[in-house]
Design a protein around this nucleic acid. Structure first.
Length: 880
RNA sequence: GGGCGGGUAGCUCAGCUGGCUAGAGUGACGGCCUUACAAGCCGUAGGUCACAGGUUCGAACCCUGUCCCGCCUACCA
């Protein structure tokens, strides 16, 4: 046993056991089983590169649930996989191409996609390796990719069904256009970012007069697309201009001056230019007034032929600068004011989006959203934390049609074929030979792809074989719980809910657990550029996967963000080390131990106590897991392992393990210690899979792995409040002795006498029976005297616990001044508490209205405080 | 503009279906290499629970208002 290392060294252990688990096939779920099913589908990581710390948290939590439920006897399935992540991945690839001096356009579609597949292979392997390192018990044999054959068929099937239901339609509206990515995107993908911009005031001459109409705009370049100028119809300043014609500066186009309620008289100068093709509000105004829409941009954000020779072909922001100069020169520019406002940015490439008219395919999600709302309202789906339901409703109730087509290359092609002959569209799951309308073979498939979230929305059932009616679906759909960050509630959770209800007729999950996002130790968002990001891989290497996982789970309070820095992770590692060393100690003392020999009824008080405490911990952890209070579960175990099992139990049984000749007593201690340690390893296993397996294997055990053992049952009958109370008394006495020694600076090696005055005969007996055995673990002492009354020795320090008084004679060591100060401090606090307790008890309303138990509690507290006050006072008097 | 969450120890946060002496991790200070663990052990200090009212026998917790902070959401040019 001496070859067990002193400090926990995770590396080899982790690798060894993961390989073992895989060889045994523990993570592979049975399609059919007598056991109840419990399934989770992973939020598929994007194939954009390495996993970040958010993934570590997300997957640690899922692994906790899966491993815990497996121990409870469920047939568990954790479905793993990765997401092609559409535009996000394309952008990564474009950057890589740029580094090599080439580009997407240069490569062409086919070659580009070929590169994407290679990149996918690379990142997919990395992601899987990192999840394995973390210890994830995924059913790897079933791993899926959103663009693999089966899932692609699911995507086409879903599309065709929706299309045939009339829910998918083509519309040429204003969309959010990303000129950098050259595609339309949905509202969700647009991040409004506050920026310091400008408000440009420009004058538009009025035909047939000397007047000008001053307007204000943040985007002067869009004036090329103006088709009107608008004022408020009741604005007395401008009423007389309504119906007249204004002249567009530079281009000289004629623009009607119109009156529209939309115009805010208070803002700017109370007049605005109307650009229906490039502003959502102007688009609406345009409709109301039958205005022409003039598109002024090319798809890449350069200005098109509608803007006149001088600006044609140049970039939108270059144009803005140039145009402002020209306006200034020609005296159209009145002023430029600083103006802070929100500007939409594409969440993927972070470039400014333009409202732009382009044909897009839309999915009418309204009817699906209604069913989804209903599913949450009637409790078919339950959100944790509950507050997330509000966000869900708010978004769902105001849902807008979802633009699902993207003018990109990487993703699922729309299953649509255009007929060159009749011009009609054929929509089909499998590539059609002929046009469904005219039978022509002259078909070409749409080149657009679907929004990446379309396939994600199918994930809970597409991964299980849908549209086929597979055994897997039958067993594991709907999934038990979806575990993900709240940041993708709308992107993903909402859409999965809608699609699950639509295609499976049943919500895809019973529970949705939305966990925190990981910030740094000061609550700042982690990011590579800020340099405060914690990279999981080196972290796991340095601290071990278990310590890392524990730190994440321990910190995962029900907050929107969790602050996680180096120190939290170090605490996780220290805990793993503590477990390791406690186990190491016990294993060293288990030599010659025969676990098959049963113990009699010679349990010591501390044995009964630790069993009771363990039993309660089983309950605490189980209930916490059931309620997704992961942090509470971690805290309960941390407290039990460190501050009860290690700090007290192990210390106390050293006496029996080392020094006693009583082999029965030793055997009992070994039995209980081994039993509690094994049980604790089970409780810890979902959070810390590796170290618990390693220790469990070395302990006396039945079965081949902790992964497939049984979760301890909580048995209320095993709670032993009597032993807990008795131990509490003993622990208080020991604490008091330690406290005196500490505060009086008694050298650890010097032996002391302990005089205890205990009026209660039961307490005297309790202390007389146990203190001799328990105290040596905590302090050096020579003799203990317990009596009904004790005469205080001259030079002694005193401590009071209720009606128990402890004297420690400290001849030559005691500092009277210090001792008096110590007692005074305690006395002050006791008096304060006593006063407030008395006040409460004197209040007749309290006696009448408060529950009996609360009153009783106060009374007994009052008694204890009173007794303590008297004893402290007496002792102070004795000190003179 | 609307909505949500928060303000508790130096730091990061638990506790909030009202009722033991308000806790943890981390940091600080003092003492220990005590044969499982210095990634450890022992002791100590540190809090008007943002502020002001209200409800109640009783409020960190419930209600109202105020002041800060963060987030989500929205079409103010």
């Amino acid at each position: 046993m001496a070859d067990i290392p002193r400090a926990y060294l995770p590396h080899e252990i982790e690798k060894k056991w993961y390989t073992f688990w895989m060889e045994k096939g523990y993570f592979h779920a049975a399609e059919k089983s007598d056991q109840p099913p419990f399934s989770i589908v992973i939020p598929p990581p994007n194939i954009t590169g390495n996993l970040h710390i958010g993934h570590s948290l997300n997957n640690s939590l899922q692994d906790v649930l899966i491993r815990w439920r497996k121990l409870q006897g469920y047939n568990t399935l954790w479905m793993p996989g990765v997401d092609h992540a559409g535009i996000g991945t394309e952008i990564i690839m474009e950057r890589k191409l740029a580094d090599r001096g080439t580009s997407r356009d240069e490569l062409g579609r086919e070659k580009f996609i070929e590169r994407m597949w290679n990149w996918k292979a690379e990142t997919h392997a990395t992601i899987r390796e990192q999840l394995e390192q973390l210890g994830c018990s995924c059913d790897w044999e079933r791993e899926r990719f959103t663009m693999d054959e089966g899932l692609s068929r699911a995507v086409r099937t879903a599309f065709v069904k929706l299309y045939n239901n009339g829910l998918i339609y083509l519309s040429t509206n204003l969309t959010n256009w990303c000129p950098t990515c050259r595609t339309g995107i949905s509202n969700l993908e647009v991040n409004p970012v506050e920026i310091d911009g400008h408000l440009y005031h420009i004058r538009y001459p009025i035909v047939g007069s000397d007047e000008f109409l001053e307007i204000a705009t943040t985007r002067p370049e869009t004036m090329f697309g103006d088709t009107a100028v608008a004022v408020h119809p009741e604005d007395e300043r401008y009423q007389h201009l309504i119906g007249k014609i204004a002249i567009l500066p530079i281009l000289g186009r004629k623009l009607p001056v119109i009156g529209d309620d939309y115009v805010d008289r208070e803002f700017g100068v109370g007049a605005l230019k109307v650009t229906p093709a490039h502003d959502p509000n102007d688009y609406e105004i345009g409709h109301r007034h039958n205005l022409e829409q003039i598109n002024i941009f090319n798809p890449d954000g350069t200005l098109n032929e509608n803007v006149g020779q001088a600006y044609h072909g140049i970039d939108r922001f270059v144009c803005r600068k140039q145009l402002v100069e020209d306006l200034r020169e020609r005296d159209y520019l009145i002023k430029i004011l600083p103006h802070r406002h929100a500007v939409g940015h594409h969440e993927r490439c972070n470039q400014i989006i333009e409202p732009y008219i382009a044909p897009q395919w839309y999915l009418n999600v309204k009817p699906m959203a209604e069913r989804a709302i209903e599913a949450v309202r009637n409790g078919e789906i339950v959100f944790r934390p509950k507050r997330e339901e509000k966000r869900f409703y708010q978004w769902m109730e105001n849902i807008e049609p979802w633009p699902i087509s993207r003018q990109r290359w990487w993703g699922h092609l729309l299953p649509m074929w255009h007929c060159q002959d009749c011009g009609k569209t054929t929509v089909a799951i499998d590539t059609p030979d002929r046009c469904h309308h005219c039978d022509s073979e002259n078909l070409s498939q749409s080149e657009q792809v679907l929004d990446t979230w379309f396939s994600s929305a199918l994930w809970p059932f597409s991964t299980m074989g849908w549209p086929d009616e597979t055994a897997l679906l039958k067993t594991f759909y709907p999934t038990a719980v979806l575990v993900t960050g709240w940041d993708i509630l709308f992107f993903w959770v909402a859409r999965m809910t809608m699609f699950g209800l639509q295609f499976m007729g049943e919500a895809p999950f019973r529970h949705v657990y939305l966990h925190a996002l990981v910030a740094d130790e000061h609550g700042q968002k982690q990011s590579k550029s800020k340099g405060n990001a914690i990279d999981p891989v080196p972290t796991m290497q340095e601290y071990g996967a278990d310590g890392f996982r524990f730190a994440l789970i321990f910190s995962n309070a029900p907050n929107p963000y969790i602050a996680l820095g180096q120190s939290q992770i170090e605490a996780g590692r220290r805990f793993a080390n503590k477990i390791w060393n406690a186990s190491r100690f016990l294993l060293m003392n288990l030599e010659g131990f025969d676990s098959s020999v049963s113990i009699g009824d010679n349990l010591s008080l501390c044995d009964r106590w630790i069993r009771s405490r363990f039993n309660r911990t089983v309950n605490d952890v189980t209930v916490a897991f059931e309620e997704y209070r992961f942090s509470d579960a971690a805290h309960a175990l941390y407290e039990f392992v460190w501050h009860e099992f290690c700090d007290w139990y192990i210390e106390i049984i050293k006496q029996r393990l080392y020094y006693t000749d009583n082999l029965n007593a030793k055997h009992t201690a070994q039995t209980v210690a081994a039993e509690i340690l094994e049980g604790t390893m089970c409780l810890l296993h979902p959070m810390m899979p590796f170290i618990t397996e390693e220790i469990w294997q070395q302990l006396p055990h039945q079965g081949e792995s902790i992964v497939v053992t049984r979760w301890p049952d909580h048995d209320p009958a095993l709670n032993d409040p009597k032993s807990e109370d008795a131990m509490k008394t003993i622990m208080s006495v020991i604490d008091s002795i330690r406290s005196i020694r500490g505060e009086m600076n008694v050298p650890p090696s010097s032996e002391i006498d302990v005089l205890i005055q205990a009026p209660d005969a039961d307490i005297r007996e309790l202390l007389a029976n146990h203190l001799e055995e328990y105290l040596p673990a905590f302090t050096h002492f020579s003799r203990i005297f317990t009596a009904e009354h004790q005469k205080k020795p001259d030079a002694a320090a005193a401590a009071v616990i209720g009606d128990i008084v402890i004297y420690i004679p400290l001849e030559g060591l005691i500092d009277i001044k210090k001792e008096k100060a110590r007692l005074h401090k305690r006395l002050d606090k006791v008096i304060k508490d006593l006063d407030s307790t008395q006040k409460t008890l004197n209040n007749s309303s309290f006696i009448e209205r408060a529950p009996e138990a609360v009153v009783e509690q106060k009374r007994s507290r009052f008694g204890a405080l009173k007794s303590e006050k008297e004893k402290l006072t007496t002792n102070l008097e004795l000190l003179g």
